[in-house]
Amino acid sequence: MNEDYPLAEKHPDQLRTPTGRPFAAITLHAAVAGEIGMEDLRITPEALEWQARIAESEGRTQLAENLRRAAELTRLPDERILEIYEALRPGRSDKAALERLADELERDYGAFRCARLLRDAAV
């Protein structure tokens, strides 16, 4: 059993929102006062990496890899994510188009794991 889990109970002090707010700062008062936005109700790449390590410690290699891909995708806007998903669906993109997307993921977002997934999909 992983001693760090659940993070919200064991390490709330080390959790942050993507805007740098402490986990404890997400309160109803702050929400009503408009001090936090949807961008605060998101996971950080650091927390995803932590969860990936927890998954790994439980022997869940593929789940860990998924969480690490997710950590990369935290840097992408919602719309871009939806577009890439759409491009991956059958018949939407040829090999070259997926290669270009993979290049973009690497170049603009440092999303190497996602880029590898896209290149692997491109046949």
């Binding site: 059993m1 992983n2 889990y5 659940p6 929400a31 996971i43 927890i54 998954a55 439980e58």
Partner: peptide
């Protein structure tokens, strides 16, 4: 709000996670 905060900790991304009435996450990890 407590449910939405799960998105920040990611605790319910682990295998087989549920929320129990106390608000705790229960999963295959704990």
């Amino acid at each position: 709000l407590a449910v939405q905060k799960l998105r920040v900790s990611g605790d319910y991304l682990q295998t087989s996670a549920i929320l129990v009435p106390s608000g705790r996450v229960l999963s295959a990890v704990n």
